[in-house]
Amino acid sequence: PEDLERKVRELQKNGVSPEQIEKILRRDGVDEREVQELVKKVS
Rank of each mutant, 00 (worst) to 15 (best):
P1Q: 13
P1V: 12
P1E: 09
P1L: 13
P1M: 14
E2C: 13
E2H: 11
E2I: 12
E2S: 14
D3H: 07
D3S: 09
D3G: 08
L4Y: 06
E5T: 07
E5F: 10
E5L: 14
E5H: 07
E5N: 05
E5V: 11
R6A: 13
R6C: 11
K7Y: 15
K7A: 05
K7M: 10
K7T: 05
R9A: 08
R9Q: 06
R9E: 05
R9G: 03
E10L: 10
E10F: 11
L11Y: 05
L11P: 00
L11H: 01
L11Q: 01
L11M: 10
L11N: 00
Q12D: 03
Q12I: 15
Q12E: 06
Q12T: 12
K13M: 11
K13T: 05
K13Q: 10
N14V: 07
N14F: 08
N14C: 10
N14M: 14
G15D: 01
G15M: 03
G15R: 04
V16E: 04
V16Y: 15
V16D: 02
V16I: 09
S17Q: 06
S17N: 05
S17L: 07
S17K: 06
P18G: 04
P18L: 15
P18F: 14
P18D: 08
E19D: 10
E19R: 06
E19H: 07
Q20L: 09
Q20V: 10
Q20W: 08
Q20P: 00
I21F: 01
I21K: 00
E22S: 08
E22K: 13
E22T: 10
E22F: 12
E22R: 11
E22Q: 08
E22V: 15
K23H: 11
K23E: 15
K23R: 11
K23A: 14
I24W: 05
I24S: 02
I24M: 09
I24Y: 03
I24G: 01
L25P: 01
L25S: 00
L25H: 00
L25C: 02
L25N: 00
L25T: 00
R26N: 03
R26M: 12
R27F: 09
R27P: 02
R27H: 11
R27V: 08
R27D: 15
D28V: 07
D28G: 06
D28Q: 12
G29Q: 02
G29P: 01
G29T: 01
G29W: 02
G29I: 02
G29A: 02
G29V: 02
G29L: 02
V30Y: 15
V30K: 02
V30W: 14
D31R: 03
D31F: 03
D31Y: 03
D31E: 08
E32L: 07
E32M: 08
E32A: 06
R33M: 11
R33Q: 11
R33K: 13
E34T: 15
E34D: 10
E34C: 15
V35L: 14
V35G: 02
Q36F: 05
Q36E: 10
E37T: 05
E37F: 07
E37K: 11
E37S: 07
E37H: 07
E37C: 07
E37D: 08
L38V: 10
V39H: 02
V39Q: 02
K40I: 07
K40Y: 13
K40L: 11
K40T: 08
K41P: 05
K41H: 08
K41Q: 08
K41V: 05
K41T: 06
K41E: 06
K41N: 08
V42H: 06
V42G: 06
V42T: 07
V42L: 15
V42F: 13
S43H: 11
S43K: 13
S43R: 13
